[in-house]
Amino acid sequence: MLARVANNLFWMGRYIERSEHIARYLNVNYFSSLDAPHQLSQSRQFVLRSMLFMVGSPEKDDTKELVESEVLYKIGMDPNDPFSILSNVRYARENANSARDLISTELYEAINKFYHYVNNYDADLFIRNSLHDFTVNVTEMTAVLRGKMRGTLLHDEIYAIIMLGINIERATQIIRMINAKHQDALMAQGSYGDKFSNSYEWTTLLKCAESYDMMRRFYKKSPNSISTLEFLILNPNCPRSVMNSLNQVCKHVKVLDPSKKYDKTSTSFLVGRVRAEYQYKYIKEIEEDIQGFIEDILANLVAISEEMEKEFFNY
């Protein structure tokens, strides 16, 4: 496969995954905040700031009064903001366009439909009363895309590259959510019953990652900081966990580089090394320094992405 096109497919996967996470984060935070038990968690400003923080465009001015419609527009529909859902879907489709000879017609048409849906969505309507409709549709359409990828692509190099993009992005987004919610939990603690470790924000976090039900089934008790982090970071059976994403990355990178020889400069080697580190981690170690952990893992994911670029996407 052409190196340039591989790069585009990789990013197509990333943008699709990213748009989904942003949509879900918007949805869950917005709606769960409406009847959140904690005063601060209910605060509009608090929620809007959390959203901006998560998409990577935090508001630095603490005193600024954020306007809800502006923030929603910026994150959802602003064509000039590279972080917006609309921009992400556009990039995804542009990348798909350049590779449309390689992906299935079914997948391409689904991406194209997705793009037209988002692109033609009435921005006014979205801001006023269709946040739910829009974000739910975005997440559902991305689920359709994942289905088309699995079901209509040959599971070869092309599939592997898209899955690499998706999984690296998923791990990155989960970490970003953990980061954002960790911040929120720190800020929203203090009063009765919802100290940091039992904060309502952990429930929100799990819902943002579509993992609340799974988590409840697994632990059979209310989520707290440690069980939530353990589940979302280390549990290999949780499809949204960082561990699971790393396992997927490991599996798919082997399709691109099937050699089993010891080569410490290969991407495959780096992925294996990073995975091994988390595979045998205690959650206690992470909890001691969550911030340090977040920075570490983000740096590792960036390093993997850069290695891939050098090894496979160099053109």
């Binding site: 052409l2 449309r100 053109y315």
Partner: peptide, 30 residues
């Protein structure tokens, strides 16, 4: 262009995907 590449089952390349060395043409793949 993409239709023809796809239905012929061949690569769709841009100029920057190709290079010439010793008067032979190559494409840059993964």
């Amino acid at each position: 262009h993409s239709y023809l590449a796809k239905t012929m089952g061949v690569e769709l390349v841009e100029g920057r995907d190709l290079f010439v060395e010793n008067d032979f043409v190559y494409m840059k793949t993964t």
